[in-house]
Design a binder for these strands. Sequence first.
DNA 1: TGAATCCGCTCAATCGTTTTAGCAACCACG
DNA 2: CGTGGTTGCTAAAACGATTGAGCGGATTCA
Lengths: 351, 351
Amino acid sequence: MPRVRISDVAAAAGVSISTVSLVMNDRDARIPLETQERVRAAAAATGYTPNSVARGLRMQTTRTIGLVSDTIATTPYAGRMLAGAQDVAREHGHLVILVDTGDDAEVERDAIRALADHQIDALIYACMWHRVVDAPDHLPARTVFLDCRPVGGGHPAVVPDDRAGGATAVRELVAAGHRRIAFVDVDEPNAPIASALRLEGYMEALREAGIEPDPELHVYGATTTAKGGRSATDLLLDLPESRRPTALFCFNDRMAAGAYVAARHRGLEIPRDLSIIGFDDQQLVAAELDPPLTTVALPHYEMGRWATEVALGVRTPDDPGAVHLMECPIIRRDSVSPPPAAGRDPGRRRT
Amino acid sequence: MPRVRISDVAAAAGVSISTVSLVMNDRDARIPLETQERVRAAAAATGYTPNSVARGLRMQTTRTIGLVSDTIATTPYAGRMLAGAQDVAREHGHLVILVDTGDDAEVERDAIRALADHQIDALIYACMWHRVVDAPDHLPARTVFLDCRPVGGGHPAVVPDDRAGGATAVRELVAAGHRRIAFVDVDEPNAPIASALRLEGYMEALREAGIEPDPELHVYGATTTAKGGRSATDLLLDLPESRRPTALFCFNDRMAAGAYVAARHRGLEIPRDLSIIGFDDQQLVAAELDPPLTTVALPHYEMGRWATEVALGVRTPDDPGAVHLMECPIIRRDSVSPPPAAGRDPGRRRT
DNA sequence: TGAATCCGCTCAATCGTTTTAGCAACCACG
DNA sequence: CGTGGTTGCTAAAACGATTGAGCGGATTCA
C-alpha cells in the first residue's frame, strides 16, 4: 500500500491541505483547538508522517549530514567517533549518510558530490587517525574536519591533543617514581603526525620533572604494530642493566602489546620489573592484555560529538579559525607501578 | 553561491528545460547530436549536477538505502559488513544512511520511521553478531536481514554458517592428527546462537572422524572474553595428563587469547604442546597473538555485499524464503600443529 | 453607519526535476 | 494538393510538502 500523504489526512479531517500542514507544524495560532484536534486525530488514524523528500525540496534542508571518511566505519579503530556523531545527529533530528572512501581520491570526490546533490545540510570530513589532509576543492560551506586538519585551514577542525596526552602519560610514570623513561616510537617513512606530537609531550613532561632526556631511550619500531613495539623494546632491554629504562611510554597500545611480549621473553614481569603505558585505549588490546594496560585514551566519542555539533550549528567554536584540541584522558589499569628498588635484581625468572 | 539548476543550463544552452533533461538522461533519440553537444557543453560549463532531492520526489526513488544496526558501526567487530554494503551501494550509485540504535527499541523504531520518511529504496537490518531477532512491525517491503534472522521469516536474511565453520575448525585439527579435541564454549545465560551451532559442527566433525565425543572436553567460560577462555581452559589443563586435550577449538578469538595465557602459565608452548584454533578472525586479536592464531573467519564483508545486493534487487536469493548461509573460511596461521608424540612429556618448562 | 480588525480557513505558488502529450515545420507520396 | 509521417523541440503536469496572500463573514471601534 502506498504512503499516506497530507492530502489523505486533509480529506479525512475535512479541511484543506494547508490547514493540515499548519497544524502539524503548529505554524498558525489562529486555528481553533477543535480543528487542530480533528486534524491530529485524522493524522494519527491514517498513520501520516510527512515525506521528508518533499519537505526537503520545499524547505531546502534535508536534515541529513554527510560523513566521509577514509576507513572509519570499516575498521575497528575509530568507531566511537561515529557513535558521537550519530548521537548528536539523532538528538537534533538528523540522519547521517556515511561514506567510507578507502582513501581513494576519486571515490572521495564522487562521494562528496553525491552528498552535495543529496542536499546534505553539513559535511563532516573524518579520518581514522590524526592527520593533516590535503582536502578536496569543492567542499560545502558547512564542512568540519574530524580527527584531521586541512592544510590550508578554512574550516573548523577537531583533533586529539596528542602533545598534552603524551605529557600526561609521562607524568603518570614520573609520579610513580620513574626517572629512566623510554619512548617507544615508530619510524615509518610517513610516521603519523601524532608521533611527533606525543614525543613533544614526552619531552615536556621530562623537562618539567627535571629529567635530562636520554637519546638512548628514544627507540623506534618499524611499524605501529605489536611486532614494531617488540623489536623496539628489545633494543631497550639489550642495554646494560644500569642504562635500561624502568618504564616505557609506547606510541600506541599495539606497540605496548609488543613490549609485553619482549618483556615476557626476558622473564620480566609487568609492572613489577617494567612499567608500561600505551596510547589510544583500544579496548580489544589494552583491556585484554595481561595485566590490563594503563593507557591514554583518544577521545573519539567526544570529537565526534564536537564535530557534529558545530556542523549542525548548535555549537560555535571559541575560535572558528583554530583547530580544536580535545583532551586525552588517562585510563589507569595495572601496568604501571613504582620502579624496582634500585640495585635489586629485576628478576630473571618467574616464580 | 547557490547551486546551478537545470534551468540555468537550459538558459545557457538556449533550449528548454525539457530538452536539457532529455539529453542529460538520454531519453529521446530524436534530439540531434549538435543540440546534445550544446547542452552537454553548457552543463559542463556551469558545473551542473542534478538535485537528487527534486529527482527523488519526482522519480519516487532516492537511490539511498538505510542500514540500521544495533552497534555495528560503533564497535570494532563487524565493520567489514559495512564495507561490503557500501561497496555494493557505490557500485550501483546508491548512498547508505546509517543508524546505530545501541539496541534501544525506541531509537530503532524512530530510526526506521525516519528512514522510511526519507524514502529509502531499501532497508538493511543488521546485527553485530549472529542473532535471531524479534523484528519491529512496520518494515519496508524491501528489507533484508544481515547477520541475523527475524523470528517469523518473511524477509531475506543472511547469516554465517556457524555449524559448517565449527566443523571446518575441528576437521583442521583432526587433519593435523588430533583425537582429543576440546570445545571451549561459553556459558552465558543467553549464549549466542552461534555457540550451539558451532557445537553442532564440532560434534559433526568428530563423528565424521570416528571420534567419540568426550563430555569432559566440552567446557564453558562465563563470558566470551579472554577471561572466560582462560578459566575454561584451566579446567581442561587441570585434567590428569592422559585425559587432557591436545587441541582446543575455542568459541572465538578472544577466548582463544585466554587459552593462550592459561597455557603459557603452565609452561605449555603453542602449538607444540597444545594446538589452538579460534573463530571470528578478529584482526586485532588473532593476528597479533604470539604465535598468530589459526581461526575460522566470519565472512562479514561477503555478508554485507550479499544483503545489499538483494536489497538493491541486483541479486535474487535462490530460495527467497530461506536464510542464506555464508561459508566461513579457515585462516591458517601458526597455532596448529600435530599433537605431541604420544607418551612424550608435553614440556613443563620452556627452553 | 462605515472602516478596521479579527477569525478560520483556503488558494496557489513554490522547491527542481522528469516525462507525456503535442505543436509546428518539413518531407514524401499518391 | 491533401494526407501522413518524421523531426526537433517545448508546455505543462506531476511528485508532496510549506507558506504568504487573501477571502468572506463576524466583531469592534469611532
